[in-house]
Design a protein around this nucleic acid. Structure first.
Lengths: 329, 329
DNA sequence: TTGAAAGCGATACCAG
DNA sequence: CTGGTATCGCTTTCAA
């Protein structure tokens, strides 16, 4: 591969001048500029990016940590991030953590080794305390999840509100025995939603029963399983608030499988409003998360950090969770 | 950030020795080794990767071109690629082309600028002729799609067979008027499946009617639309072979919406066997593509190229498409 | 077993 | 407006 030196030689000029042409500096005569461009063309020259990076200390690359690539919520989030990134000429290093702290921890070193300018987190498996040191090496922006104590810049939604409107909707539909179902226990998003769930129950004078709480359901199969467990209870709930459309879909499927009518005998509410929510029978009532837009904003936030232009990142209207009523409630 | 020089100074040794320790060279005395390690620890040192890259000409990074991140087929493919990559310490630069040749073309320059060691293609929007020059700068491996004329190493399935078994299945179910539906026209995968479709028809003495061919359907909404178009035909088909579960789901939904019975009045067969196939009502008969495994193998193939160890990439059993019969046919 | 020094390919300061 | 040169941080001969 040709280097800047080859171009300089062919054009009969210095490396400095070639560099100036590449970087669109002023003060280069039209003639030399043409000479350089011709030389670049005829050598099929393309600058070596690691040399540029080493010199400039900028990678124009961002790492994105994703727990599970196949989860539609995260792929939409990534899509949003990618769209802005590509627009701005930023490359994306995608790091799948598989929900494992050790893998995630390892990826944080990308910042230390200066392979990326910053990291966008879409979840956090490690304690903030154990990774805060990395923030000295570049901006870390969080989206989806949040950790108030960390002071990390973030883009997120009011998940307490999400738990609240979902539960309230079920109550308004006449339910009194409402179960709560979520993914991994440690997630702050889950905790927030549970607060909202309890808030709604309280408001209507209902008690949260611990046996109505399922804290391990993450996918379609889990949803089926949860339905079975629910039915085995001595006083089974008549409605359930779930943390994802996958789980809700599993519940609905298994309910029908057992001959239960949805929503008459068991009402189900999903979360996310993924494509799957329109495909189940009956279609899922769910709470829409604007995943793409969260991603977009996270990337914009990151840009404002790495360009450290004090571009105030124009105040965007707050992102809201929204109840989408279909037929499962 | 500390550099190798700082470490050398603190340890009272030369940069060479520090480098040798980092790279686990033999011939370093235990004592100096310990000294270096202590210095690295106390300086919280981490080598600068662009310096390493510049010097060694290896990035340990692979670019993956994906047309659409939110398409579950591609996210599973990516998951497979990622799993092997992470295992081997290879980073992934994810490039979403949005099915646009211009965007894709731009990404190819990653190879020229030496930001990546190789590229894994999961589709190809440009003509091979217009991108073949890039192959001089590093290995390009293709998966999912294929282009016989290019001679590119690839991992793919017999899509003709896919079209064949799907169509044959419909014929065996008693259908004679069978429609064919696919995504973008130019895709070779689509063309191959259509050949298989025609092959099956021919085998049973049936003619392929051009008005039964729909070549623009890529998602759920498109599926709904296709069903309407089909029904508007003077002699509507009684079965349809589709190129994706999304489209099939749309068809099934719209059929039910119009009061048509599936599969009695209209049989639908999907493709991929994505999670969505179990969620529709009725559940989709479909043709399973082992997306994760395709991804895994593509990455293994890439590794064999960049390590250029003549490690014969042990002969794996061929990947096969497989008919999964559920209730939509 | 260790160190000195050249060089990977680009950028930017300082002269002229 | 243009060129010489030091420099980014690391690896790898070559000598000792």
């Amino acid at each position: 591969m040709a280097t800047i030196k080859d171009v300089a030689n062919l054009a009969g000029l210095s490396r400095s001048t070639v560099s100036r042409v590449m970087n669109k500096y002023p003060y280069v005569s039209e003639e030399k500029k043409r000479l350089v461009e011709e030389a670049m063309k005829s050598l099929n020259y393309y600058p070596n990016s690691s040399a540029q990076t080493l010199r400039s200390q900028k990678t124009d690359t961002i790492a994105v940590f994703i727990p599970m690539l196949t989860n539609p919520f995260f792929s939409h989030l990534l899509e949003g991030i990618d769209t802005v990134a590509t627009e701005k000429g930023i490359r994306l290093l995608v790091c799948q953590t598989k929900y494992e702290a050790a893998i995630e921890k390892e990826f944080f070193n990308l910042l230390k080794s200066k392979q990326v300018d910053g990291i966008i987190l879409t979840s956090l498996e490690n304690d903030w305390a154990s990774v805060r040191e990395f923030a000295e090496h570049g901006p870390i922006v969080m989206c989806n999840e949040y950790d108030a104590s960390s002071g990390m810049p973030n883009v997120c939604l009011d998940q307490v509100y999400g738990g609240y409107i979902g539960t309230r909707h079920l109550i308004e539909k006449g339910h009194r025995k409402i179960a709560f179902c979520q993914g991994r226990f440690k997630s702050l998003v889950s905790k927030a939603r549970e607060s909202g769930y309890k808030l709604a129950l309280e408001e209507f004078g209902l008690a949260a029963k611990e046996e109505y709480a399922f804290r391990i359901a993450a996918d379609y199969q889990d949803g089926k399983e949860v339905l079975k467990q629910m039915r085995a209870l001595s006083d089974p709930p008549t409605a359930i608030f779930t943390g994802s459309d996958q789980v809700a879909a599993g519940l609905v499927y298994e309910a029908r499988n057992l001959g239960l009518k949805v929503p008459e005998e068991i009402a189900v509410i999903g979360f996310d409003d993924q494509p799957i929510a329109e495909v189940t029978y009956p279609q899922l009532t769910t709470i829409r998360q604007p995943a793409r837009e969260i991603g977009r904003r996270a990337m914009l936030l990151m840009l404002s950090k790495i360009l450290s232009e004090e571009n105030q990142l124009e105040d965007l209207e707050p992102l809201m969770l929204e109840l989408i009523e279909r037929s499962s409630t």
